[in-house]
């Protein structure tokens, strides 16, 4: 005879698994520039052999060789112990041959800097851009002292301190709706991905949907479905979902337009998505002016953190915040439930 587990309904088995899940964390997915490695460029520095000359040298260098493009770099560094201070002279040319160093008189030929007190110049790698996050700052400062204007919100988010327990409970509720939709879609033979759109001002769920790429339309991924459901709620929309009862929206008279001026499509809204979206969906969210995206698990070629970071590019006209890891365990299992 089958064991007791075999007779239990699906939802009960799920509940048991969920109790075993470790608590989830909402992890900030950094934008493009914030996530990049610290880029380094070559510069000339020299030891200050006569310490009493330091402030004069810094003054004259700042006037004669201002580091206009690199305001984040400090001019002087102390290496500690009995070692002399070191002062940044100027950037090296990109074609600088590390084997053939220029002399002080070659680097500072115009006489604006009195080289008294300076030792032999040497090459050093310095950070090309101001650091944007604490990890970038720590890496940059290992090469040369660097100014850092810490973004409190980013640091809080990276430390997982951005959301209160009440916030997290609400986030969990919204992701559960997305998971529920994914399961309902899967029962109709759809790819098990679900999504929900929430108005951040009121906390109301405006749309819930699941992936329809195997039925209604090959491009109707869960995100595209939800964008169109929001449009339906605003009196627009391009598709009809009456064959998919789990795809629902709140008509706009029930969530009156708030604030000054009309909101643009999804501005002021959050999207909950069981897995990281593809490039089409991530860019669709740029066009729709979404405010934040919360997803459960990463995708192999996902466009919000894995392969691209379409949400945080300076060269696009809209940026949004992204967090991953919301109900990671159940979101992860969505793929497996159908595969088995």
């Amino acid at each position: 005879p089958a064991g007791p587990g075999a007779m239990e309904p699906d939802y009960k088995r799920r509940k048991m698994q969920e109790l075993d899940d470790p608590p989830w964390e909402a992890l900030l997915v950094l934008p493009e520039l914030e996530s990049q490695e610290v880029e380094l460029i070559l510069a000339y520095a020299a030891p200050v052999l006569l310490k009493t000359e330091t402030s004069r040298l810094v003054q004259q260098l700042s006037a004669a060789r201002p580091l206009t493009e690199l305001p984040h770099l400090k001019r002087v560094r102390a290496r500690g112990g009995t070692q002399p201070l070191e002062v940044l002279l100027c950037l090296a040319s990109p074609s600088q041959d590390t084997g053939a160093l220029q002399t002080l008189s070659e680097l500072l030929p115009d006489g604006q800097v009195d080289i008294c007190g300076l030792g032999e110049p040497f090459l050093v790698q310095v950070p090309a851009r101001a650091p944007l996050t604490r990890p970038q700052f720590e890496e940059a400062a290992r090469h040369w002292p660097t100014a850092f204007h810490e973004n409190k919100r980013t640091s809080q988010a990276l430390a997982g301190q951005l959301f209160t327990p009440q916030d997290k409970a609400a986030m969990q509720g919204h992701m559960e709706q997305a998971i529920h939709a994914a399961r309902q879609g899967a029962e109709l033979g759809m790819v098990p991905v679900g999504a929900a759109v929430v108005d951040t001002a009121t906390g109301r769920v405006l749309a819930v949907g699941h992936d329809c790429r195997k039925g209604l339309h090959p491009l109707l991924h869960a995100t595209m479905v939800c964008i169109d459901l929001v449009a339906c709620g605003q009196g627009g929309g391009a598709y009809s979902y009456h064959d998919y009862p789990a795809c629902t929206f709140l008509p706009s008279d029930e969530h009156a337009v708030s604030g000054d001026g009309l909101p643009y499509i999804c501005s002021g809204y959050d999207l909950y998505l069981t897995r990281e979206p593809c490039a089409m969906c991530a860019m669709a969210l740029v066009h729709s002016r979404i405010q934040r995206v919360f997803y459960g698990v990463a995708s192999p070629h996902g466009a919000l953190g894995t392969r691209y970071r379409i949400h945080g590019r300076k060269d696009l006209n809209h940026r949004y915040e992204v967090f991953r890891g919301i109900l990671e365990g159940p979101c992860q299992r969505l793929g497996q439930e159908v595969a088995s």
Partner: peptide, 22 residues
């Protein structure tokens, strides 16, 4: 482009044409 009529910012010319081919 049909963004304004549909209130859906994803209704670019290419997306509209894909629907017609389907």
């Amino acid at each position: 482009n049909e963004v304004n009529e549909t209130k859906n910012a994803t209704r670019h010319a290419e997306m509209v044409a894909i629907d017609q081919v389907l």
